[in-house]
């Protein structure tokens, strides 16, 4: 089949069901709908950012079944049934997640565009429990580019939350 012949035919959609920030969402999408675009365009959850669309910057990072992933590198249909947490789902009853507050307190952002991805990535990193030193935080946060250069403040913010968790015995 050549492209133009296919072009004139109807575009078939596929069903996808996702739990996003605790809410079940059922959608019909074209198979090549990317999870990131589904969040931003279809569900109007624009907190998750598109920075490069190729897994090269981390701005689109969300938590999928608890693990941090680049939502730009996933077809939505392949995540059917998954639990997804975006930056909009981190605060509880209006109370910011400790890492969100730490980002504010340490001025860990400037333009704010990479910030949701940094925070979701940081939440994932804390959950993984592998980062204990600044060197480790730096390395395990290197998948999130901040062109404004807030890196040292981002490390400060994450270090503070890891430290608080350790103190609380979590």
């Amino acid at each position: 089949m050549n492209a133009s012949r296919k072009g004139s035919s109807k575009l078939e959609t596929v069903p996808v069901t996702l739990t996003v920030n605790g809410e079940t969402k059922r959608l019909e999408v074209l198979p090549w709908t990317i999870l990131l675009d589904l969040l931003r365009d279809h569900l109007k959850l624009s907190g998750t950012k598109k920075g490069c669309d190729h897994g090269q910057c981390g701005a689109c990072t969300v938590l999928v079944d608890g693990r941090r992933l680049n939502s730009c590198m996933a077809f939505a249909v392949m995540k059917d049934g998954a639990q997804i947490t975006t930056v909009e789902g981190l605060a509880r009853n209006g109370d910011l997640h400790p890492l969100q507050q730490a980002f504010i307190d340490h001025d860990a952002f400037q333009c704010g565009y990479c910030t949701p991805g940094q925070i979701c990535s940081g939440v994932g990193l804390i959950e993984e429990g592998r980062a204990h030193t600044r060197d480790e935080i730096r390395e395990y946060m290197s998948g999130n580019i901040c062109r404004c250069g807030a890196y040292t403040n981002i490390v400060d913010a994450i270090e503070q939350v890891i430290g608080a968790d350790a103190e609380a015995g979590r």
Partner: peptide, 8 residues
């Protein structure tokens, strides 16, 4: 504008 930026 910090809160707006960390909450999306």
């Amino acid at each position: 504008d910090g809160r707006a930026k960390v909450t999306g």
